[in-house]
Amino acid sequence: MTFFDKKMDYRVTFDLDENIFIVYSTDTKHQGSGITIEQAIDDLKKSA
């Protein structure tokens, strides 16, 4: 799925092996991960 934040576009996937959400920025190709989608988005924002 692709979601649109006011500041960035990102895609969300779920890693079944690790049981974590992974969020990819569609603009910068950075990624973040977390147990919840919100944590993954926060991690992505830190790396961007």
Rank of each mutant, 00 (worst) to 15 (best):
K45M: 15
S25Q: 05
T13Y: 00
V12H: 00
T2G: 07
H30F: 15
A40K: 06
A40P: 08
Y24N: 11
I35K: 14
T36C: 00
G34E: 06
S33Y: 14
T36V: 01
T2L: 12
D42M: 13
S47G: 07
V23N: 01
I41D: 14
E38W: 01
K6P: 00
F21T: 00
Q31R: 11
L16Y: 06
M8L: 09
I20V: 12
K29A: 08
G32W: 07
H30L: 09
T36K: 01
D27N: 05
A48P: 03
Y10N: 02
Y24L: 09
M1E: 07
F14A: 01
E18F: 05
F4G: 00
S25R: 03
D9A: 08
S47A: 15
T36W: 01
M8Q: 12
Q31C: 12
I37Q: 14
Y10F: 14
R11C: 04
D42E: 15
D42N: 10
F21I: 01
S47Q: 15
D42H: 10
M1I: 06
F3E: 11
Q31N: 14
F21D: 01
A48E: 15
E38F: 03
I22L: 08
Y24G: 05
M8T: 06
L44Q: 11
M1R: 06
A48K: 12
M1K: 06
T36L: 02
V23L: 06
D43R: 09
V23S: 06
T2Y: 12
A40H: 09
D5T: 09
D17M: 05
G32V: 11
D5S: 10
E18N: 09
D27M: 03
E18G: 02
K45G: 10
I41L: 15
N19Y: 08
D42A: 14
H30I: 07
D42Q: 14
E18A: 09
S25C: 14
I41V: 15
R11E: 11
V23T: 07
F3P: 00
T36P: 02
I20E: 05
E18R: 13
Q39Y: 11
H30C: 12
D5G: 03
A48L: 15
D43G: 09
D17L: 09
I37E: 15
D15I: 02
Y10H: 06
S33E: 11
G34Y: 08
I37C: 03
F3Q: 13
S47E: 14
I37S: 00
G32N: 12
D42I: 11
R11T: 11
F4H: 07
L44V: 10
T36S: 12
K29T: 05
K46G: 11
Y10V: 03
S47L: 13
G32C: 13
V23M: 09
